[in-house]
Amino acid sequence: MSKPYQSIPISDCGEPLVAIAANSLNAMITIDPHPYVSLQAPYGDRSPFWVRQGILERLQKAQAYLQILHSNWKIALFDAYRPIPVQQFMVDYSFAQLAASKGLDITALTEEQKNALMEEVMKFWAIPSDDPRTPPPHSTGAAIDVTLYEHSPEGMIPVDMGSPIDEISDRSLPNYFASFRNAQAVEFHRHRELLSQVMTHGGFVRHPNEWWHFSYGDQLWAWISHEQLAIYGGVS
């Protein structure tokens, strides 16, 4: 069940991971409490809000551009760095949740059912590989999950993107609402396109299956951008 981008070779540039909270990123917000931490995902001594130094700088550039387009909107960071154990934890959790949503008993699945469920999960989750040649994008510190928030009388509130982050369904596809003509769907697509526009301005590329996932410098970025090398490998 390998991914096409995993064949891209990696020549890590050696850039360090930096904690976003320690960098006075006042123009952005982080989503707290973090949903995976709330599930007790095994992050160890790092929070989810670490990225490579170059990713932080690109995020700042994207947020500055968003401020020009919408002065009262902010990029909200949902998730960034994930150790391999967290990736495995979330794949297992998502598998169990998907099975439950279909009314299936996870302890009594046939091999055919297991394979079908895992195929669905793997459309949206990277393989939790500990092979240095095939790190999950989030384990490189180069991939981030983001959305948009806007200022309201009640404070900063999420902009409706049409589906929640991590939903395992076709609604997660970036252009899912592009062909709809009703006003609400048009608005959802416009919001997704705005997010893509500001992140692209920062140098990021968007995941083909996930409206919220952007990266720069990892294998997925190299594959989408037709680059020969990824510059960010796995970070333990």
Rank of each mutant, 00 (worst) to 15 (best):
A185S: 15
V121W: 07
R181Y: 05
Q228H: 14
L173T: 13
V146G: 04
D160N: 13
E210D: 12
D92Y: 08
I144R: 00
I127W: 12
Y65S: 05
G141T: 02
F188C: 08
V121Y: 11
L17C: 04
Q113P: 07
A99V: 10
R82I: 04
D105L: 07
I68Y: 14
Y65C: 02
R192H: 04
G202P: 10
T200N: 14
S152F: 10
E120M: 13
L104H: 06
K114I: 11
S71P: 03
P83H: 09
A183E: 08
N26H: 14
A96E: 05
Q67F: 13
A116F: 12
A108R: 13
V205Y: 13
Y149D: 00
E57P: 01
D105W: 12
K114G: 05
A126V: 08
S196N: 14
S215K: 01
P48E: 00
A183W: 03
E119L: 10
A27C: 06
S163K: 12
G217Q: 08
I106Q: 08
H213V: 09
K102L: 11
D160S: 04
N115F: 11
L195R: 08
S215H: 03
A126E: 06
S2G: 02
I29M: 12
A230P: 01
L17E: 00
H34I: 05
I144V: 15
N182F: 13
L77Y: 02
G14H: 09
I127G: 01
